[in-house]
């Protein structure tokens, strides 16, 4: 579990990125931070692994104050996936995935074998192992990014708009596989997006941020759609019309899940090639 208690982030120029945030992020679930740009959602995410240090308040991970852990050690225990994947251009796919295990001093051969298993798990052909990131499509690179974040088996995964840079068809496929993967691994996932559809689709809990770094509402998708806390949240959901649409999509997804494997997955793999 990750907790924020009265956390603020102010920059020297006076900008307030995050304003008195209290938040409890449950273990083993996907929590989505959503909001327009400049609302502090990414800053909030980055304060968890201390890529940004909070100005006030306390952040704990499983009861430990993150300030008491030195940043590199903290970060090696938390997976991180970003929009451009951030793959190392000078390392092969398999070595990219094995990065953190090797940092932790694990055996090189085992790390590579494990990386190959992970490739399969995220739906990547093992034949890609010896390639370099430039030789992969955007969707494939994102899968590598996810595999790399999982490689050291961290209990927590931070994901910053991981699927925003790929086209909609591939994105849908990645989201579906991501949900399937999460069913297997049950990580504590904090997921940042500006896309409310994605938030409703993936989130077990959704935290809606508004400009100025204030938390507007923190609820399950159902509660959020049923009772938006204020006018800002209602607008962000797209008004009554948007809420109806989001509910409809949500029901469709539920049916898809019931009917088992989706056709999307296959379509996505084809599109990735």
């Amino acid at each position: 579990m990750i907790t924020f208690e009265g956390v603020s982030k102010r920059y020297p120029d006076g900008t307030v990125a995050v304003d008195h945030l209290d938040l409890e992020i449950p273990a083993g679930r996907i929590t989505v931070l959503v909001g327009p740009s400049g609302c502090g959602k990414t800053t909030t995410l980055r304060m968890i692994n201390r890529m940004v240090d909070a100005t006030d308040g306390t952040i704990t991970v499983d009861g430990r104050n993150v300030r008491d852990v030195d940043p590199p050690t903290l970060r090696r225990g938390i997976g991180y996936v970003i929009q451009q994947a951030g793959l190392f251009p000078h390392r092969t796919i398999v070595d990219n995935i094995a990065t953190v295990p090797l940092l932790l001093g694990r055996n090189k051969k085992e790390a590579r074998t494990h990386a190959l298993e992970l490739m399969e798990r995220v739906g990547l052909d093992a034949a890609l192992a010896k390639r370099y990131p430039v030789q992969l499509s955007g969707g494939q690179q994102q899968r590598v990014g996810v595999a790399r974040a999982l490689a050291a088996d961290p209990p927590i995964l931070l994901m910053d708009e991981p699927f925003s840079a790929v086209d909609p068809v591939v994105r849908t496929g990645l989201q579906d596989e991501f949900l399937r993967l999460q069913d297997e691994v049950e990580k504590t996932i904090v997921f940042v997006t500006h896309d409310i559809d994605e938030a409703v689709k993936l989130g077990h809990r959704i935290a809606v941020f508004q400009v100025g770094g204030k938390l507007a509402q923190y609820a399950s998708p159902d509660e959020l759609l049923a009772a938006p806390a204020n006018a800002f949240v209602r607008d962000f959901l797209g008004g009554d019309k948007g809420i109806r649409r989001l509910r409809f999509t949500q029901e469709l997804e539920a049916e898809d899940d019931a009917s088992g494997q989706t056709a999307d997955t296959v379509a996505d793999k084809a599109a990735d090639r």
């Binding site: 692994n49 890529m51 940043p71 590199p72 050690t73 903290l74 970060r75 090696r76 225990g77 938390i78 991180y80 970003i82 929009q83 451009q84 994947a85 951030g86 793959l87 190392f88 251009p89 000078h90 990065t99 953190v100 940092l103 790399r148 931070l158």
Partner: peptide
Amino acid sequence: VPDHVRQAATAMGFGPLRRLLQVELPI
């Protein structure tokens, strides 16, 4: 060196020296 690569390295727990030697200089 792309900024996202540098960020990713930091987020995975590379210290400044290791990041320089293993990520930035090779690129």
